[in-house]
C-alpha cells in the first residue's frame, strides 16, 4: 500500500518541472538517495547485535555439547541435543503443563474479557473512571502480581485462602497442591490479562456503526438476533486476535510461575520457560538449552505469523 503510493508519488513527480528540482537534488545527495536504508540501519544494527546475532550463535550452540560452567571447548555433537531433548519426558511434561495453563488462562481471559466488554460497551455515568480501575491489573508488573498473589494464596494470611476458607471451613494450602497450584497460576494470570481481551473486544464493539443498531431496531430484531447478526461479526476478528496474542504471551509465561510456585509443587507448574530456565541457568546445559530455545522460537514464529496474518486481514476488511 505505502509502497505503491510512494512510487506513484515519485512517478508523478518526474512528470512535473517543479518536482524535477527535487528529483535532481535527490539524485545529487547520497543521503537523500538512500533515505530508506539510512533511516532503518541504526535500528536493524542494534537488533542484529542484541537479538539476531545471539540467536544465530545460539543456533550454532545447539549442535555442540557445551556447558557454560566448564572450561572445556564446545564439542560438536550434531543433532544429539535435539535427540536428547525429544527423548526427555520432562520437556513433554512441561509442554503439557504449558498447554494446560495457556488453555485455562486464555480461555478464562476470553470469557471474562468478553463479558466485561459487553458490560462496558455503552456510555454510562462514571464509565471512564471504572474502566481505569478494571484495567489496573494489566498495568501491574508480573512481579507485583506474583509477589502479592503468592501472599493472597498464603494459607494463614492470604485473601484468597480466607475466601475459600469461608466455603470449606479449613484454610486451603493452595500452592501445596498440584491442582491448586495450577489453578492458582491460571487465576492470577487470567485476572491480570482479561482486561486486555476486554480492551480488544471493546474496540470491536465501538467499531459497529450506530446506524446498524438503529436499522435493526426498525426491523424489529430481537436482542439475541441483533447480537449474532450485527455485534458478533464486528467482534469476531478481534476475539481471534486477542486469542492469538494472549496465547503467545501466556506461552512465554515465566515471571509469575517463577515467583509463585517456582514450577512446583513437584513439577506441577513447570511451564516450558521455567523448564528452560532450569536447564540453562541452573543445570547450565547450555547446548541442550539452545536446542530447546529453538523449538520455542519456532512455535513463536508460527504463532506470530498467524497473528500478523489476521491483523492484515482485519485491516483489509475495514
Amino acid at each position: 500500500m505505502t509502497q505503491a503510493s510512494d512510487s506513484m508519488a515519485q512517478g508523478a513527480a518526474t512528470d512535473r518541472p517543479v518536482a524535477n528540482a527535487a528529483a535532481a537534488r535527490r539524485r545529487g545527495s547520497f543521503v537523500e538517495r538512500n533515505r530508506g536504508p539510512l533511516l532503518v540501519t541504526p535500528a536493524l544494527v542494534t537488533l542484529f547485535v542484541m537479538n539476531i546475532f545471539p540467536l544465530m550463535w545460539s543456533f550454532g550452540l545447539s549442535f555442540y555439547d557445551y556447558r557454560l560452567t566448564r572450561q572445556d571447548l564446545p564439542r560438536f555433537v550434531g543433532l544429539d541435543n535435539y535427540a536428547r531433548m525429544l527423548a526427555d519426558p520432562s520437556i513433554w511434561e512441561s509442554l503439557q503443563t504449558t498447554a494446560l495453563i495457556v488453555a485455562g488462562s486464555v480461555g478464562l481471559q476470553m470469557i471474562l474479557g468478553f463479558f466485561m466488554a459487553m458490560l462496558f460497551q455503552p456510555i454510562f455515568p462514571g464509565r471512564r473512571i471504572l474502566l481505569m480501575l478494571v484495567l489496573a491489573p494489566m498495568m501491574l508488573s508480573y512481579v507485583a502480581v506474583g509477589v502479592f498473589f503468592k501472599l493472597f494464596y498464603n494459607p494463614n494470611f492470604g485473601l484468597i485462602s480466607k475466601l475459600i476458607e469461608v466455603f470449606q471451613g479449613t484454610p486451603p494450602n493452595i500452592l501445596g497442591d498440584p491442582v491448586g497450584a495450577v489453578l492458582g497460576i491460571i487465576f492470577a494470570d487470567a485476572w491480570m490479562w482479561s482486561p486486555f481481551v476486554m480492551l480488544l473486544v471493546l474496540a470491536g464493539l465501538v467499531s459497529v456503526p450506530k446506524y446498524l443498531y438503529e436499522a435493526s431496531q426498525i426491523d424489529r430484531a430481537t436482542p439475541w438476533r441483533r447480537f449474532w447478526t450485527i455485534t458478533f461479526p464486528y467482534v469476531r476478528s478481534l476475539l481471534l486476535l486477542a486469542l492469538l496474542f494472549r496465547t503467545i504471551e501466556t506461552f512465554k509465561l515465566f515471571d509469575t510461575v517463577y515467583i509463585i510456585t517456582e514450577g512446583g509443587p513437584g513439577t506441577a507448574t513447570k511451564v516450558i520457560v521455567q523448564y528452560l530456565y532450569r536447564v540453562s541457568f541452573q543445570d547450565f546445559r547450555t547446548g541442550e538449552s539452545s536446542a530447546i530455545a529453538y523449538v520455542i522460537l519456532f512455535i513463536v514464529i508460527v504463532l506470530t505469523n498467524l497473528y500478523l496474518f489476521m491483523v492484515k486481514r482485519r485491516e483489509q476488511e475495514q
Binding site: 557454560l68 520457560v273 528452560l276
Partner: peptide, 30 residues
C-alpha cells in the same frame, strides 16, 4: 515512508524479537 524490498519481512522479524520469551535470547547473550 520509504519501504525497502522485503519491508514486511523486516517488520515481522522485528516483531518476532519482541514476541520471543526473553530466555531464548538470554542464553547466548549471557
Amino acid at each position: 515512508r520509504f519501504p525497502l524490498r522485503g519491508n514486511d519481512t523486516y517488520m515481522f522479524i522485528i516483531l518476532t524479537t519482541r514476541m520471543l520469551p526473553p530466555i531464548v535470547v538470554t542464553i547466548p547473550i549471557f
